[in-house]
Lab assay of single mutants.
Amino acid sequence: RDEMEEWSASEASLFEEALEKYGKDFNDIRQDFLPWKSLTSIIEYYYMWKTTD
Protein backbone atom coordinates (compact mmCIF):
# COMPACT_ATOMS: atom_id res chain seq x y z
CA ARG A 1 0.00 0.00 0.00
CA ASP A 2 1.13 3.52 -0.65
CA GLU A 3 0.96 5.81 2.38
CA MET A 4 1.57 8.88 0.21
CA GLU A 5 -1.81 8.35 -1.47
CA GLU A 6 -3.62 8.74 1.83
CA TRP A 7 -2.19 12.20 2.53
CA SER A 8 -3.68 15.32 0.98
CA ALA A 9 -1.52 18.19 -0.21
CA SER A 10 -2.57 20.28 2.79
CA GLU A 11 -1.66 17.46 5.17
CA ALA A 12 1.71 17.13 3.47
CA SER A 13 2.43 20.83 3.96
CA LEU A 14 1.28 20.65 7.60
CA PHE A 15 3.67 17.75 8.05
CA GLU A 16 6.60 19.73 6.62
CA GLU A 17 5.74 22.71 8.81
CA ALA A 18 5.58 20.42 11.86
CA LEU A 19 8.91 18.84 10.95
CA GLU A 20 10.54 22.28 10.86
CA LYS A 21 9.12 23.10 14.29
CA TYR A 22 9.62 19.79 16.09
CA GLY A 23 12.15 17.82 14.08
CA LYS A 24 11.50 14.11 14.49
CA ASP A 25 9.39 14.47 17.61
CA PHE A 26 6.48 12.61 16.07
CA ASN A 27 4.36 12.72 19.23
CA ASP A 28 4.40 16.53 19.20
CA ILE A 29 3.86 16.61 15.44
CA ARG A 30 0.78 14.43 15.87
CA GLN A 31 -0.54 16.32 18.90
CA ASP A 32 -0.16 19.83 17.46
CA PHE A 33 -0.49 19.36 13.71
CA LEU A 34 -2.06 16.05 12.69
CA PRO A 35 -4.14 14.65 15.57
CA TRP A 36 -6.38 12.70 13.16
CA LYS A 37 -3.39 10.69 11.87
CA SER A 38 -2.02 7.68 13.72
CA LEU A 39 1.53 7.89 15.03
CA THR A 40 2.42 4.93 12.81
CA SER A 41 1.03 6.69 9.76
CA ILE A 42 3.07 9.82 10.52
CA ILE A 43 6.27 7.82 11.01
CA GLU A 44 5.71 5.80 7.83
CA TYR A 45 4.98 8.98 5.93
CA TYR A 46 8.17 10.56 7.28
CA TYR A 47 10.34 7.71 6.00
CA MET A 48 8.63 7.74 2.61
CA TRP A 49 8.86 11.53 2.45
CA LYS A 50 12.54 11.41 3.38
CA THR A 51 13.38 8.94 0.61
CA THR A 52 11.48 10.76 -2.15
CA ASP A 53 12.51 14.14 -3.42
Rank of each mutant, 00 (worst) to 15 (best):
S13M: 13
D32S: 15
Y22P: 04
F15S: 06
T40C: 09
D25S: 15
S10L: 12
S13P: 04
R1Q: 10
A18E: 08
T52V: 11
W7Y: 07
W36I: 01
E6K: 13
T51N: 12
L34S: 10
T51Q: 15
S41F: 06
K37A: 03
T40V: 04
W49D: 06
L14C: 05
Y47Q: 14
D2P: 05
S10I: 07
S8C: 01
G23K: 00
S13Q: 13
Y46G: 08
E44C: 02
I42L: 05
W36D: 05
S13Y: 05
A9D: 06
E3M: 13
D25T: 02
W7S: 03
A9L: 07
S13C: 11
N27D: 13
K24P: 14
K24Y: 09
N27V: 10
M4G: 00
E17N: 05
K50I: 05
Y46W: 05
Y46R: 04
S13A: 15
K37P: 01
L19V: 13
L39W: 02
T40F: 01
N27R: 09
E11Q: 02
I42P: 02
D25I: 11
D53N: 14
M4S: 09
Y46F: 03
R1K: 13
K37D: 04
D2Q: 15
I42M: 02
Y47N: 13
A18H: 01
A18L: 05
D2M: 13
E20V: 10
W36G: 07
D53T: 08
T52W: 07
I43A: 11
E3N: 15
L14Q: 04
M48C: 12
Y46L: 02
E11Y: 03
E17A: 05
Y46A: 02
S10C: 06
K37I: 06
L19C: 00
K37L: 02
D32E: 15
W7R: 04
A12W: 02
S41Y: 07
Y47P: 11
G23V: 01
A9V: 08
T52S: 12
E11P: 00
E3W: 01
K24R: 11
E44I: 03
L14S: 03
M48N: 11
L19N: 03
E11N: 01
L39P: 03
Y46P: 05
E16N: 05
E17F: 07
E5T: 04
S38G: 15
S8Y: 13
K37W: 02
S8E: 00
Y46Q: 03
S10A: 11
I29L: 08
L14H: 00
Y45M: 01
S13D: 09
Y47E: 15
M48H: 14
D25Q: 13
L39I: 07
W49G: 11
D25P: 02
A12Y: 03
E16G: 01
R1V: 14
D25G: 07
N27H: 08
L14T: 02
Y47S: 14
I42G: 05
K50A: 08
L14K: 11
S13N: 10
I29H: 04
T40A: 09
E3R: 11
D28M: 14
W36V: 05
E5L: 08
K24D: 11
E16H: 10
M48E: 10
E17Q: 06
T51D: 13
E5I: 10
W7F: 04
K21F: 07
W36F: 02
F15Y: 00
E44P: 00
D25Y: 08
A18T: 00
L19Q: 09
E20G: 09
E16Q: 12
I43W: 06
S8K: 04
I43D: 00
E5K: 12
K21Q: 04
K24F: 00
N27S: 13
I42V: 07
S38N: 08
W7L: 04
E11A: 05
Y45F: 13
K24N: 14
T51G: 13
D53G: 13
L19W: 13
I42T: 05
T51S: 12
Y47G: 12
T52G: 12
S41W: 01
E16L: 06
A9T: 09
E3D: 12
D25H: 11
E5A: 14
A18V: 07
K37N: 02
Y22Q: 00
Y22R: 10
K37M: 04
S38V: 02
F15D: 06
L39A: 05
E16S: 09
E20C: 04
Y47A: 15
E16Y: 10
Y46K: 03
S8R: 00
S13V: 13
T51M: 06
M48Y: 15
M4Q: 01
T51C: 10
D32M: 15
M48D: 05
M4D: 06
L14D: 03
F15T: 02
I43M: 12
D28G: 13
A9S: 09
A18Q: 06
Y45E: 03
Y47T: 15
E5H: 05
T52F: 07
F15N: 00
R1L: 11
E6N: 11
K24L: 12
L14R: 05
I29S: 06
Y46D: 00
G23A: 06
D25R: 15
S41R: 01
E11I: 00
L14G: 01
D28S: 15
E16W: 07
I43G: 07
W7P: 03
Y22V: 13
L14Y: 08
K21R: 08
D2V: 12
T40M: 08
E44V: 03
A18I: 00
S8P: 01
M4Y: 02
D2F: 11
D28I: 14
E16M: 05
W36L: 03
S38T: 05
E11D: 15
S10K: 14
S41V: 02
Y47L: 03
D2S: 10
F15V: 09
D32C: 15
K50F: 05
K50Q: 11
K50V: 14
D28F: 12
A12D: 01
W7C: 00
I29V: 08
S10E: 12
W7A: 07
A9C: 06
W7Q: 00
E3F: 12
K24C: 14
E5R: 09
N27C: 09
M4A: 04
E6I: 01
T51P: 11
T51L: 11
Y46S: 07
S38K: 02
E20P: 01
D25L: 03
T40N: 13
I43K: 14
G23E: 02
E3K: 15
T51A: 14
E6C: 00
L39M: 06
E5M: 10
S10V: 10
Y46T: 00
E17M: 09
S8D: 06
A18C: 09
Y45W: 06
E6G: 09
K50R: 09
M4K: 05
L19K: 02
D25K: 15
L19F: 15
T40R: 12
D2T: 14
G23M: 03
L14M: 04
Y45L: 13
I43V: 08
W7D: 02
Y47W: 11
R1F: 15
F15L: 04
S8M: 03
E6M: 13
K24H: 08
W49K: 15
E5V: 04
I43H: 12
W49N: 15
T40L: 02
I42Y: 06
D2K: 15
E3A: 09
D2E: 14
L19R: 05
E20R: 11
W36Q: 08
Y45D: 07
D2Y: 00
S38M: 11
S41Q: 10
S10W: 13
W36M: 04
W36A: 03
R30I: 12
A12L: 07
N27Y: 09
G23L: 03
D2N: 13
K21E: 01
D53I: 06
M4N: 12
S8V: 00
G23H: 03
D32V: 15
A18G: 15
T51F: 03
E11K: 06
R30V: 15
E44M: 00
G23D: 06
S13G: 12
K37S: 05
Y47C: 10
E16F: 08
S38W: 00
D28A: 15
Y47M: 09
A12M: 13
I43N: 04
T40I: 03
K21V: 07
L19Y: 15
M4C: 09
T40P: 09
E6R: 10
S8L: 01
L14W: 00
M48I: 06
E16C: 03
E17T: 05
S41G: 00
S8T: 12
F15M: 07
E44W: 00
E17Y: 08
E3Y: 15
M48S: 12
F15W: 00
G23W: 01
E6W: 01
K50P: 07
Y46M: 00
Y47I: 01
T52Y: 08
Y45P: 03
K21L: 07
K24M: 08
Y22K: 04
S10Q: 10
Y45K: 02
Y45A: 03
S41C: 04
T52N: 14
L39E: 01
E3G: 07
Y22F: 00
M4I: 10
L19M: 10
N27E: 15
K50C: 09
I43F: 07
R1Y: 10
K21Y: 06
Y45S: 06
W49A: 12
S10R: 11
D28N: 11
M48G: 10
E5N: 12
T40E: 14
E6V: 15
K21D: 06
A9F: 03
M4R: 12
L14I: 07
S10M: 11
S13L: 12
M4F: 05
S13T: 10
A9I: 09
G23S: 03
A9P: 09
E20Q: 07
F15H: 15
W49C: 13
E17D: 07
D25N: 14
W7I: 02
M4E: 08
E3Q: 08
E17W: 03
S13F: 08
I42K: 01
K37H: 00
N27G: 08
W7N: 04
I43L: 04
A9G: 04
D28C: 15
I43Y: 09
K24T: 15
K50E: 09
I42D: 02
